[in-house]
Amino acid sequence: MTIQSLDPRVSRLGLTSLQNDDAEQATVNQFPTFQVFTQKKEDKPFEHGGIVHAPNIEMALIFAKEQYSRRFTCSGLAVAATTSVKTTDVSENKEDIYNLIQEPAVSSSEKEPYEIFHLNKRGKQTVYAGSVEAGSFEEAAWEAKKAFQNDKPVYNLWLIRRNDILFIDEEDKDIWATLGDKKYRDALDYKATDKIKAFKEEQNR
């Protein structure tokens, strides 16, 4: 059945339903999700932006650019599969989550870099705190406690192995080159006052 719309532009599209889809419902109907981190300026930390759904991490980085840096330039962009992010509980009422972290019983000899993110206030974005060398998530949390705990409470920690994160390459950063000079989507570029004033003056004449 072709759609006949009140809107002639919709009718002209000649949209017809395929009507044969129920049979081919895939057993998996979800792309996995990836957590997206953006860095707005060189001297600012990476900050969690949100998630994207994507078939793989490379596509996730492309979608992340469209979804989280479509309206402003970034100096950095990174994605990590949600399954690769380890989180602690979320504390409340100025309780520092680091106070609940214990020294692990065993220490590994092989270490690798882990990236540490803090939730500094409930309802705000999780932001990058720094990296530590560790052999497991438990060790990484303990190392983070030694390196980053201070008198400001942290409500939630995210820990990600650096190898699980895909950062945008330096040479690909020209993806943001198209963002400049799109004034037509900038609220400041729509000036109304003069026109209204002129209109009123004409009415009163």
Partner: peptide, 21 residues
């Protein structure tokens, strides 16, 4: 109309978990 694209990209080992934040 987009379904064939999604189906072509879906992998059965894809592990969906609830996103974090």
């Amino acid at each position: 109309r987009g379904r064939w694209v999604r189906n072509a990209l879906l992998k059965s080992e894809a592990n969906y978990v609830t996103p974090l934040a």
